[in-house]
Simulated assay, not measured.
Amino acid sequence: MLTHPQFDPIALDIPIPLLDKHLQIHWYGLTYLVAFGLFLFLARLRVKKPWFAQAGWTARDVEDLLFFGVVGVVLGGRLGYVLFYKPAYYASHPLEVFAVWKGGMSFHGGLLGVVAAMAVFAWLRQRHFWQVTDLIAPCVPTGLASGRMGNFINGELWGRAADPSLPWAMVFPQAGPEMMPRHPSQIYQFLMEGLLLFVLLWIYGRKPRGLGQVSGAFLFGYGVFRFIAEYFREPDNFLGLLALNMSMGQWLCVPMILAGAAIWAWGSRQPVPTVAAGGRA
Protein backbone atom coordinates (compact mmCIF):
# COMPACT_ATOMS: atom_id res chain seq x y z
CA MET A 1 0.00 0.00 0.00
CA LEU A 2 1.28 3.46 -0.95
CA THR A 3 0.84 6.96 0.46
CA HIS A 4 0.31 9.98 -1.73
CA PRO A 5 3.60 11.93 -1.88
CA GLN A 6 1.92 15.20 -0.82
CA PHE A 7 3.58 17.34 -3.45
CA ASP A 8 3.88 21.05 -2.81
CA PRO A 9 1.25 22.53 -5.18
CA ILE A 10 3.65 25.41 -5.89
CA ALA A 11 6.17 24.35 -8.53
CA LEU A 12 8.17 27.58 -8.57
CA ASP A 13 8.41 30.37 -6.00
CA ILE A 14 10.27 33.30 -7.54
CA PRO A 15 11.10 36.25 -5.25
CA ILE A 16 10.65 39.75 -6.66
CA PRO A 17 12.81 41.94 -4.37
CA LEU A 18 11.71 45.27 -5.84
CA LEU A 19 8.09 44.54 -4.99
CA ASP A 20 8.83 42.54 -1.84
CA LYS A 21 6.58 39.80 -3.21
CA HIS A 22 6.83 36.30 -4.69
CA LEU A 23 5.68 35.04 -8.04
CA GLN A 24 4.21 31.59 -7.39
CA ILE A 25 3.66 29.17 -10.25
CA HIS A 26 1.48 26.18 -9.43
CA TRP A 27 1.87 22.69 -10.87
CA TYR A 28 -1.70 22.75 -12.09
CA GLY A 29 -1.00 25.86 -14.12
CA LEU A 30 2.05 24.17 -15.62
CA THR A 31 -0.05 21.16 -16.65
CA TYR A 32 -2.34 23.51 -18.58
CA LEU A 33 0.74 24.99 -20.25
CA VAL A 34 1.95 21.49 -21.18
CA ALA A 35 -1.52 20.66 -22.54
CA PHE A 36 -1.56 23.73 -24.77
CA GLY A 37 1.99 23.06 -25.97
CA LEU A 38 1.18 19.46 -26.87
CA PHE A 39 -1.92 20.60 -28.75
CA LEU A 40 0.14 23.03 -30.83
CA PHE A 41 2.73 20.38 -31.63
CA LEU A 42 0.25 17.63 -32.55
CA ALA A 43 -2.19 19.85 -34.46
CA ARG A 44 0.68 21.20 -36.57
CA LEU A 45 1.45 17.62 -37.50
CA ARG A 46 -2.21 17.03 -38.34
CA VAL A 47 -2.50 19.98 -40.73
CA LYS A 48 0.37 18.50 -42.76
CA LYS A 49 -1.81 15.51 -43.63
CA PRO A 50 -2.55 15.74 -47.38
CA TRP A 51 -6.33 15.96 -47.00
CA PHE A 52 -5.99 18.88 -44.55
CA ALA A 53 -3.19 20.60 -46.48
CA GLN A 54 -5.22 20.36 -49.70
CA ALA A 55 -8.12 22.01 -47.88
CA GLY A 56 -5.87 24.98 -47.09
CA TRP A 57 -5.13 24.36 -43.41
CA THR A 58 -1.94 25.99 -42.09
CA ALA A 59 0.05 26.22 -38.86
CA ARG A 60 -1.40 29.71 -38.34
CA ASP A 61 -4.88 28.17 -38.24
CA VAL A 62 -3.68 25.92 -35.42
CA GLU A 63 -2.63 28.92 -33.34
CA ASP A 64 -6.04 30.51 -33.84
CA LEU A 65 -7.74 27.23 -32.95
CA LEU A 66 -5.78 27.11 -29.70
CA PHE A 67 -6.97 30.60 -28.76
CA PHE A 68 -10.61 29.73 -29.45
CA GLY A 69 -10.20 26.43 -27.60
CA VAL A 70 -8.68 28.01 -24.49
CA VAL A 71 -11.56 30.49 -24.23
CA GLY A 72 -14.09 27.71 -24.76
CA VAL A 73 -12.60 25.28 -22.24
CA VAL A 74 -12.25 27.89 -19.48
CA LEU A 75 -15.71 29.43 -19.86
CA GLY A 76 -17.42 26.12 -20.57
CA GLY A 77 -15.59 24.26 -17.82
CA ARG A 78 -16.60 26.80 -15.22
CA LEU A 79 -20.20 27.17 -16.36
CA GLY A 80 -20.51 23.39 -16.64
CA TYR A 81 -19.43 22.96 -13.04
CA VAL A 82 -21.87 25.65 -11.91
CA LEU A 83 -24.83 24.21 -13.84
CA PHE A 84 -24.16 20.45 -13.61
CA TYR A 85 -22.81 20.10 -10.09
CA LYS A 86 -23.86 23.02 -7.84
CA PRO A 87 -26.69 24.96 -9.48
CA ALA A 88 -28.56 25.64 -6.22
CA TYR A 89 -25.45 26.89 -4.43
CA TYR A 90 -24.43 29.29 -7.19
CA ALA A 91 -28.01 30.48 -7.60
CA SER A 92 -27.76 31.62 -3.99
CA HIS A 93 -24.17 32.92 -4.37
CA PRO A 94 -24.09 34.28 -7.96
CA LEU A 95 -20.90 36.33 -7.51
CA GLU A 96 -18.95 33.17 -6.66
CA VAL A 97 -19.48 31.97 -10.23
CA PHE A 98 -16.53 34.22 -11.05
CA ALA A 99 -14.34 32.96 -8.17
CA VAL A 100 -12.44 30.51 -10.35
CA TRP A 101 -9.45 30.58 -7.97
CA LYS A 102 -11.55 28.56 -5.53
CA GLY A 103 -11.67 25.66 -8.00
CA GLY A 104 -14.53 23.98 -9.78
CA MET A 105 -14.21 22.97 -13.42
CA SER A 106 -16.18 20.37 -15.37
CA PHE A 107 -14.73 18.42 -18.30
CA HIS A 108 -18.16 17.95 -19.84
CA GLY A 109 -18.83 21.68 -19.57
CA GLY A 110 -15.40 22.39 -21.02
CA LEU A 111 -16.19 20.08 -23.92
CA LEU A 112 -19.41 21.95 -24.65
CA GLY A 113 -17.49 25.21 -24.45
CA VAL A 114 -14.92 23.95 -26.95
CA VAL A 115 -17.68 22.72 -29.26
CA ALA A 116 -19.24 26.19 -29.18
CA ALA A 117 -15.85 27.83 -29.78
CA MET A 118 -15.13 25.53 -32.72
CA ALA A 119 -18.55 26.30 -34.18
CA VAL A 120 -17.73 30.02 -34.04
CA PHE A 121 -14.31 29.36 -35.60
CA ALA A 122 -15.86 27.29 -38.39
CA TRP A 123 -18.45 29.99 -39.08
CA LEU A 124 -15.85 32.79 -39.17
CA ARG A 125 -13.50 30.80 -41.44
CA GLN A 126 -16.30 29.32 -43.55
CA ARG A 127 -15.18 25.75 -42.86
CA HIS A 128 -17.28 22.70 -42.14
CA PHE A 129 -17.73 22.21 -38.40
CA TRP A 130 -16.90 18.49 -38.53
CA GLN A 131 -13.75 19.14 -40.50
CA VAL A 132 -12.58 21.44 -37.69
CA THR A 133 -13.34 18.92 -34.95
CA ASP A 134 -11.88 16.02 -36.95
CA LEU A 135 -8.63 17.97 -37.11
CA ILE A 136 -8.36 18.64 -33.38
CA ALA A 137 -9.92 15.49 -31.87
CA PRO A 138 -6.73 13.33 -31.77
CA CYS A 139 -4.82 16.27 -30.25
CA VAL A 140 -7.07 16.59 -27.19
CA PRO A 141 -6.35 13.43 -25.09
CA THR A 142 -2.75 14.42 -24.30
CA GLY A 143 -4.11 17.59 -22.74
CA LEU A 144 -6.54 15.51 -20.69
CA ALA A 145 -3.64 13.32 -19.58
CA SER A 146 -1.71 16.39 -18.48
CA GLY A 147 -4.68 17.63 -16.49
CA ARG A 148 -5.05 14.31 -14.70
CA MET A 149 -1.40 14.49 -13.67
CA GLY A 150 -2.20 17.89 -12.20
CA ASN A 151 -5.07 16.31 -10.24
CA PHE A 152 -2.70 13.63 -8.91
CA ILE A 153 0.00 16.14 -7.92
CA ASN A 154 -2.63 18.18 -6.06
CA GLY A 155 -3.97 15.03 -4.40
CA GLU A 156 -7.52 15.81 -5.51
CA LEU A 157 -10.32 13.81 -7.16
CA TRP A 158 -9.10 10.68 -5.40
CA GLY A 159 -10.57 7.24 -5.89
CA ARG A 160 -12.97 5.03 -3.98
CA ALA A 161 -11.90 2.69 -1.20
CA ALA A 162 -9.61 -0.11 -2.41
CA ASP A 163 -8.54 -3.48 -1.05
CA PRO A 164 -5.39 -2.86 1.03
CA SER A 165 -3.79 -5.84 -0.73
CA LEU A 166 -3.91 -3.98 -4.05
CA PRO A 167 -0.23 -3.16 -4.70
CA TRP A 168 -0.95 0.37 -5.95
CA ALA A 169 -3.71 1.21 -3.45
CA MET A 170 -2.90 4.65 -2.09
CA VAL A 171 -3.73 6.64 1.01
CA PHE A 172 -4.64 10.26 0.33
CA PRO A 173 -4.25 12.07 3.69
CA GLN A 174 -6.37 14.99 2.48
CA ALA A 175 -9.29 12.61 1.87
CA GLY A 176 -10.02 12.34 5.60
CA PRO A 177 -8.66 11.18 8.94
CA GLU A 178 -9.63 7.54 8.38
CA MET A 179 -6.55 7.12 6.13
CA MET A 180 -8.20 4.38 4.08
CA PRO A 181 -6.47 2.96 0.97
CA ARG A 182 -8.01 4.20 -2.25
CA HIS A 183 -7.74 3.71 -5.99
CA PRO A 184 -5.45 6.34 -7.55
CA SER A 185 -8.21 7.08 -10.04
CA GLN A 186 -6.37 10.11 -11.42
CA ILE A 187 -3.73 7.70 -12.77
CA TYR A 188 -6.42 5.41 -14.21
CA GLN A 189 -7.88 8.39 -16.07
CA PHE A 190 -4.42 9.52 -17.17
CA LEU A 191 -3.84 6.10 -18.71
CA MET A 192 -7.28 5.49 -20.23
CA GLU A 193 -8.84 8.75 -21.38
CA GLY A 194 -5.39 10.27 -21.80
CA LEU A 195 -2.69 8.03 -23.23
CA LEU A 196 -4.76 5.10 -24.51
CA LEU A 197 -7.38 7.29 -26.16
CA PHE A 198 -4.62 9.38 -27.75
CA VAL A 199 -2.90 6.31 -29.23
CA LEU A 200 -6.16 4.91 -30.61
CA LEU A 201 -7.30 8.21 -32.13
CA TRP A 202 -3.88 9.08 -33.53
CA ILE A 203 -3.69 5.72 -35.30
CA TYR A 204 -7.31 5.98 -36.49
CA GLY A 205 -6.77 9.53 -37.74
CA ARG A 206 -3.66 8.69 -39.74
CA LYS A 207 -5.83 7.92 -42.76
CA PRO A 208 -8.63 9.96 -44.33
CA ARG A 209 -12.01 9.21 -42.77
CA GLY A 210 -15.56 10.19 -43.48
CA LEU A 211 -16.56 13.63 -42.23
CA GLY A 212 -17.21 13.47 -38.48
CA GLN A 213 -15.88 9.96 -37.93
CA VAL A 214 -12.77 11.00 -35.98
CA SER A 215 -14.88 13.36 -33.87
CA GLY A 216 -17.42 10.60 -33.22
CA ALA A 217 -14.64 8.19 -32.26
CA PHE A 218 -13.33 10.74 -29.74
CA LEU A 219 -16.73 11.28 -28.10
CA PHE A 220 -17.44 7.55 -27.96
CA GLY A 221 -13.97 6.61 -26.71
CA TYR A 222 -13.78 9.29 -24.04
CA GLY A 223 -17.31 8.53 -22.87
CA VAL A 224 -16.55 4.81 -22.49
CA PHE A 225 -13.20 5.28 -20.73
CA ARG A 226 -14.54 7.97 -18.39
CA PHE A 227 -17.60 5.86 -17.60
CA ILE A 228 -15.32 2.98 -16.58
CA ALA A 229 -12.98 5.21 -14.56
CA GLU A 230 -15.92 6.62 -12.59
CA TYR A 231 -16.41 3.21 -10.96
CA PHE A 232 -13.05 3.77 -9.24
CA ARG A 233 -13.37 7.53 -8.57
CA GLU A 234 -14.96 8.83 -5.39
CA PRO A 235 -18.23 10.61 -6.27
CA ASP A 236 -18.53 14.28 -5.32
CA ASN A 237 -19.51 14.31 -1.64
CA PHE A 238 -22.26 16.90 -2.22
CA LEU A 239 -23.88 14.65 -4.87
CA GLY A 240 -23.00 11.06 -4.07
CA LEU A 241 -24.34 8.39 -6.39
CA LEU A 242 -27.45 9.15 -8.38
CA ALA A 243 -30.03 6.91 -10.07
CA LEU A 244 -28.88 3.35 -10.86
CA ASN A 245 -25.90 3.93 -8.52
CA MET A 246 -24.22 5.98 -11.22
CA SER A 247 -22.21 9.14 -10.58
CA MET A 248 -22.91 12.48 -12.22
CA GLY A 249 -19.82 11.91 -14.37
CA GLN A 250 -21.26 8.63 -15.65
CA TRP A 251 -24.64 10.14 -16.42
CA LEU A 252 -22.93 12.91 -18.38
CA CYS A 253 -20.99 10.29 -20.32
CA VAL A 254 -24.12 8.48 -21.52
CA PRO A 255 -25.13 11.16 -24.06
CA MET A 256 -21.48 11.42 -25.14
CA ILE A 257 -21.33 7.72 -25.94
CA LEU A 258 -24.65 7.77 -27.81
CA ALA A 259 -23.79 10.95 -29.70
CA GLY A 260 -20.32 9.64 -30.56
CA ALA A 261 -21.74 6.40 -31.98
CA ALA A 262 -24.39 8.30 -33.98
CA ILE A 263 -21.89 10.80 -35.40
CA TRP A 264 -19.47 8.02 -36.35
CA ALA A 265 -22.26 6.06 -38.07
CA TRP A 266 -23.35 9.21 -39.94
CA GLY A 267 -19.76 9.90 -40.93
CA SER A 268 -19.33 6.39 -42.30
CA ARG A 269 -21.82 7.35 -45.02
CA GLN A 270 -19.93 10.54 -45.94
CA PRO A 271 -17.34 10.66 -48.74
CA VAL A 272 -13.74 10.08 -47.65
CA PRO A 273 -11.36 12.92 -48.65
CA THR A 274 -9.21 12.00 -51.61
CA VAL A 275 -5.47 12.55 -51.68
CA ALA A 276 -4.01 14.15 -54.81
CA ALA A 277 -1.41 12.22 -56.79
CA GLY A 278 1.95 12.35 -55.07
CA GLY A 279 0.49 12.95 -51.62
CA ARG A 280 1.05 10.52 -48.77
CA ALA A 281 -1.67 9.47 -46.37
Rank of each mutant, 00 (worst) to 15 (best):
G29F: 02
A11V: 00
V47F: 08
K86R: 14
K49M: 15
L33R: 06
G159H: 01
V73G: 03
Q126I: 09
H93F: 12
F172P: 08
H183N: 02
D8V: 03
L65T: 05
F172G: 10
A117I: 02
A281R: 14
K21H: 14
P181F: 10
Y231N: 14
D163I: 07
E178A: 15
A117E: 00
W202N: 05
F7E: 08
H26P: 15
F52A: 07
A59I: 10
G109W: 00
N154E: 06
I187C: 01
A59E: 15
I25Y: 03
G194E: 01
V254W: 00
W251H: 09
Q131M: 10
G260I: 00
G109V: 01
V70T: 10
Q250V: 06
K21W: 14
I14L: 11
M248Q: 14
M256H: 07
M248S: 10
Y90D: 01
P235D: 03
M180I: 15
R44C: 11
Y188M: 03
P141I: 03
T58K: 04
I136K: 01
H108C: 03
I228R: 09
P184H: 02
S146M: 10
R127C: 07
L30W: 01
F39P: 00
H26R: 15
L40F: 08
I228N: 07
G110I: 09
S215N: 08
A259S: 13
G56H: 06
R209Q: 12
A161S: 12
L40G: 09
R269D: 12
A137H: 07
V272C: 05
Q24M: 15
G240H: 01
R209Y: 05
M149R: 06
Y85W: 05
M180L: 14
R160P: 11
C253L: 02
L38E: 04
L19H: 04
M179V: 10
P87C: 06
P15N: 09
K207D: 13
T142I: 12
D134C: 04
G80Q: 04
A59S: 15
L33F: 10
H128L: 11
L252F: 06
E156L: 03
F36D: 12
M192A: 14
